[in-house]
């Protein structure tokens, strides 16, 4: 009747399935925890009653509006997340300074749209990389091709070949850190490869 995900490989990790046929429901425990945390934070005060109510509401929501039982491929690596956050902060600061310089220097920039091939293949990782890249002031994502995993980025001073190289390098670095923070094992193996070789093939 009740199946724990450790016993059946087709369920997503850390989840419980119960019921049969059309009434089968899968409870994703991390999702329940996340919803309960948001509930408590929205109330603004922590109390046990609040927490219990949050868990009850989260479970009821998950039962009433079931998500398809698909594995998104999201894995959390705490050390990787910390490294990603620190890198993003540093990158935001550095490229914020660079964009500020470009604002105040009055020579005509030639902008360009640059195609950057990515190494990861899962949709979630591509999306996460695009979100991370476009949160940094220097990167404005115009288009993302899922089929070829190519990111199209608008670069401000494209008349400088060094700036193009920097933009490419920083996108690849963001991609690698994002996948190391949230990716599954095979995706991590994929991004460990040198992007240049991927480029050549």
């Amino acid at each position: 009747m009740i199946t724990w995900s450790a016993r059946s490989p087709e369920l997503p990790p850390y989840s419980v399935a119960f019921g049969h046929g059309r009434h089968r429901r899968v409870l994703d425990l991390p999702l329940v925890v996340w919803l309960a945390v948001i509930w408590v934070l929205l109330w603004g005060t922590f109390s046990w009653a609040n927490l219990v109510n949050g868990v009850v509401v989260a479970v009821l929501l998950c039962l009433a509006f079931p998500l398809p039982p698909a594995d998104l491929g999201l894995r959390l690596h705490p050390w990787g997340i910390l490294k990603l956050l620190l890198y993003l902060l540093w990158d935001m600061w550095i490229s914020g300074v660079r964009v500020t310089k470009q604002i105040f220097v009055d020579y005509p920039h030639r902008a360009a749209v640059l195609a950057i091939p990515l190494r990861c293949r899962s949709e979630l990782m591509l999306t996460a990389t695009a979100v991370a890249v476009s949160n940094v002031p220097g990167g404005s994502v115009i288009e993302l091709r899922r089929a070829t995993a190519t990111l199209f980025v608008h670069v401000l001073d494209a008349d400088d070949p060094k700036a193009l190289e920097t933009a490419r390098r920083s996108v690849w670095r963001t991609e690698e850190l994002t996948v190391r923070a949230f990716g599954s094992r095979e995706e991590i193996a994929r991004v460990s490869a040198d992007p240049r070789q991927e480029d050549a093939t």
Partner: peptide, 17 residues
Amino acid sequence: LPEVLSRSHAATKPQAL
């Protein structure tokens, strides 16, 4: 900044950092 796409670079700064 001169055109839409360049402006969106500058807009990211108050939004994120």
